[in-house]
Nucleic acid binder design. Sequence first.
DNA 1: CTTACGAGG
DNA 2: CCTCTTAAG
Lengths: 256, 256
Amino acid sequence: MRIITANVNGLRSAARKGFFDWLEGCGADVVCLQEVRASAAQVEEVGGKPPGWHVYQREAEKPGYSGVAIYSREPAREVVDHFNCAEFDAEGRYVEARFDGLRVVSAYLPSGSSGPERQAAKYRFLDEFALHLDKLARGRDEVVLCGDWNIAHTPIDICNDKGNRRNSGFLPAERGWLTEVLGRGWVDAFRQLYPAEEPGGYTWWSNRGQAFAKNVGWRIDYQLVTTGLAARLTRAEVYKAQRFSDHAPLIVDYAD
Amino acid sequence: MRIITANVNGLRSAARKGFFDWLEGCGADVVCLQEVRASAAQVEEVGGKPPGWHVYQREAEKPGYSGVAIYSREPAREVVDHFNCAEFDAEGRYVEARFDGLRVVSAYLPSGSSGPERQAAKYRFLDEFALHLDKLARGRDEVVLCGDWNIAHTPIDICNDKGNRRNSGFLPAERGWLTEVLGRGWVDAFRQLYPAEEPGGYTWWSNRGQAFAKNVGWRIDYQLVTTGLAARLTRAEVYKAQRFSDHAPLIVDYAD
DNA sequence: CTTACGAGG
DNA sequence: CCTCTTAAG
């Protein structure tokens, strides 16, 4: 089973860069997207409803903002497009597809980098989301939590750790929150497979300067999985051969 | 003497399309621009203050909106960047460069096509501007009134005359106003040289559809000149070899 | 720097 | 349809 997560920073922009051509041959069973920034109708207009895929989407109320989606080869038994948090459900940050014994989530955590107001919103999200993750972890189904978490966990998850200690996305409180989550039954799929890696596995590079060319990146896109799935991990890869967005897709394979 | 008028629809955009390369070799003594849509500093950033040219500019108060400029090989004796009409002077629609016995004006008349409010503004402009044109005509200097007038004068000045009789830019009241102006001492340079021409000489084509490819255009950019200059007209050309904008430059030569 | 939106044309 | 704005990232 192959699951991919990707922040596309505008699915219409990603489509222009060949995202849907790549999707066709990527071998995934489920693909989770964040920052779709388009309505279902707009997604359809750019070839975003390809045959052979089921598409489950949650838009933000504000047009062109945020938005998540799940593309699945198999139809979901059930789809839930919120986590019962009015403020952030209105921002289109959560969609969950339920299959037989498996739930796949596409989540887009707020960025706090635009200022203190959005950082405060990010902390509100983290509080609410932690409660929801606890509920998911206590359920019977295995779960893959895909998403752009907008948090780099440890110094090996970011290029310039010292310079970013006071920047949103690498603040001690954010990193501590993620450590807490990982202590409550969730496993970071990429890090489980490559625990002793040198700094790397980055999934995001700023558009400013030559960040991608110089690999000045952050690992902020994750698949967190329940322990049953962690035991089935076989491979993880950050796909950098094509650029669809300022983020790179994270591809994770699980033994069937 | 060669004088050129061009609505550049964003001078920064036109610069990306090679406008300043073309300017260097265009042979003009004076070039009048409309819809500059950039501040003097922004113009400078994109190479808009080339050596060998004097640049006289009037910005709108609203950033990125309207704005006119005059590029001149010779320095002006005097520059006036308004026509004493508070409403439209604030919109950056008039700049006049005064030379020995000659005044060159770059004027950008309002478009009314976005709705009744802007059409009403256009009529207010026409009323005020007519008074100003009368003053200019009564002066001692010869005058070249360059600009985007946002009015096609007669059926041979527009591709689809019947279909546009009720559209802003070809309304009877607008066309009548222009006829009035031409009756008070101003000569339409292009039409003076090519009076019996078939429909054509268009200077603007919609960006929608294939208007340029199909030559579905409007002649709305003019040089209106005082009678002394009308006698010196030698040549007029709409420059279509390169596209800097949805408008084409109008090049007019006057005997020295 | 890039993607969206909305105004204006 | 295109070029600007601003907000957001």
